[in-house]
Computed example of a mutant assay.
Amino acid sequence: MSTTVSTPDADETCAHCGSRIFDHDPICVRDCDDGCGSPTYFCNYACLSAHVEDNDLTAGDACEWSPEE
């Protein structure tokens, strides 16, 4: 499996708030559990965090860790 790295368009918008990503501190996210699909762009970590919360993307994931396991 390989992933192509490319720079998004200058007018690319945030998947959460719709702001232009390059007006802020952009983040690119890929779902690599599903064939590393198309990248999703966020203008900053706050929008990424809000997107994760709004879409309940942590449900069922391993959010706890114990050194005994």
Rank of each mutant, 00 (worst) to 15 (best):
F42V: 00
G60K: 03
C63E: 12
C47H: 00
C43F: 07
Y41N: 05
S49N: 10
P39W: 03
N55H: 14
W65E: 03
C28I: 02
D25P: 07
P67C: 07
F42T: 00
T13I: 06
S6Y: 10
S49V: 04
A59K: 02
F22P: 01
P26M: 13
V52A: 07
T3I: 13
S2M: 07
S66R: 13
P26E: 08
G60E: 07
A46P: 15
L57Q: 07
T40P: 15
H16M: 10
C43P: 11
E12P: 03
W65I: 02
C17I: 07
D54H: 11
V5Y: 12
C63R: 12
Y45M: 08
C14V: 01
F42D: 00
D25I: 04
N55K: 11
N44W: 06
C36L: 06
E12C: 08
D25A: 14
T4L: 09
D11I: 04
E68F: 13
D56N: 15
D33F: 05
A50Y: 14
D9V: 08
C32Q: 06
T58I: 09
T40D: 15
D9N: 13
Y41D: 08
E12W: 04
P39T: 06
S19M: 14
N55P: 05
I21C: 09
S49Y: 01
L57C: 07
G37K: 00
V52L: 09
E12T: 10
R30N: 07
S6M: 08
H24C: 11
P26N: 12
T13S: 10
T7Q: 13
C63W: 13
I21D: 03
R20K: 10
T7R: 08
G60F: 06
T13C: 08
N55R: 12
D25N: 15
S38C: 12
E12V: 05
